[in-house]
């Protein structure tokens, strides 16, 4: 492919990924309300459009037209940048994720990945982790006690759960021997029994738990725990700036779904009679549903319980898992 062709293809891919995933992130809020309503025996949004499908649009109009309030004592530029960091890092992380298997369109072979770098896993995790600067800066800049508490919780949660994510993912990487998400996917090409989740079940569970903490989902959403610190880092935000945090959060949930299905659940390999492209969409949808399911089923934890879980339970198990995997590989 020529340089010009490559540039045009990359720009088209970027636009498609941005458009598709911001739409999906918006639609995720509707799905979340519907699933929660179903589990709590309510109806959820019903009035706007059939079954309330257009609720997303109504919310969008509301957020866009709301007044953008910036508190008087806030540190203005940082207060304004923080939500953009949240949304931007979520989409930058998607740049190294292979979304579908290769396919042909109009006689051109398309690799549905924006940047195929050979350290894909690390890049995605690193950029997702730097997304936690968003709640941290938001909380510290808004000169609000609840915001500051939210920011402090962000710092602890990130520094602790980053360790668990890294260690849990190390064991499957040792099996595969590569950091490229495409290599990891190809390692599991032998079908259902080749999935890494069967050889590394502990790592899978640890990765999911740490994923809940890093995307700030319910058993661990202490950053904006309504019952304790009003709305945490987002207390002072309104309108579209507030909305951007949540677009980032939902985009991160989708990215995490892709990571978990690529690393542990066989990725985009054909699954029996289901073609690969559909298989990965099904897996990511299930993991997204799993996030919502957990939110409906589990209460919040306390901050000290969160730390206890990280350092006294998850971290030792992760280290043991790595050591055992190493010994088994050596034998």
């Amino acid at each position: 492919m020529t340089t010009t062709g490559f540039i045009i293809a990359t720009i088209i891919k970027i636009l498609v990924v941005l458009g598709l995933f911001s739409a999906l992130a918006g639609f995720g809020t509707y799905l979340e309300r519907k699933v929660l309503a179903f589990m709590q025996r309510r109806l959820g949004p019903m009035h706007v459009g059939p079954y309330g499908v257009l609720q997303v649009l109504a919310d969008g109009i509301k957020l866009f037209t709301k007044e953008d309030i910036i508190p008087q004592n806030a540190v203005k530029p940082i207060f304004m940048i923080a939500p953009i960091i949240g949304a931007a890092t979520a989409f930058i992380a998607l740049a190294a994720v292979p979304i579908l298997p290769e396919f042909e369109i109009f006689g051109v072979k398309v690799h549905p990945i924006i940047a195929d770098i050979n350290v894909g896993v690390l890049f995605v995790l690193g950029v997702m982790a730097s997304g936690l600067f968003a709640p941290l800066l938001a909380g510290m800049a808004s000169s609000n006690k609840w915001g500051l508490l939210g920011a402090a919780r962000t710092a602890i949660q990130l520094l602790s759960y980053e360790v668990v994510t890294g260690l849990s993912i190390l064991a499957p990487l040792m099996l595969v021997g590569s950091l490229s998400l495409i290599d990891i996917n190809n390692y599991q090409s032998g079908g259902f029994t080749d999935w890494i989740v069967w050889s590394q079940p502990v790592a899978f569970v640890l990765f999911l738990i740490a994923g809940f903490a890093e995307t700030n989902r319910t058993p661990f959403d202490l950053l904006e725990h309504e019952a304790e610190i009003v709305s945490g880092y987002a207390t002072e935000y309104s309108g579209m700036r507030w909305g951007m945090f949540f677009i980032g959060e939902y985009a991160n949930m989708i990215t995490l779904g892709f990571l978990a299905s690529l690393i542990f659940l066989g990725g985009f390999n054909d699954w029996g009679f289901i073609p690969g492209g559909l298989a990965i969409v099904l897996k990511v949808s299930f993991l997204f549903f799993f996030f919502l399911w957990t939110r409906a089923a589990w209460p919040h934890v306390r901050p000290d319980q969160l730390m206890w879980l990280c350092w006294k339970v998850l971290m030792p198990i992760a280290v043991l898992n790595v050591v055992v995997t190493g010994i088994v590989l050596m034998m």
Partner: peptide
């Protein structure tokens, strides 16, 4: 570089706070 400095600067923020 991204991963290490995200964590390291985050710790500095904690001190600043």
């Amino acid at each position: 570089q991204i991963i290490v400095y995200t964590g390291a600067v985050m710790a500095l923020y904690a001190f600043g706070m």
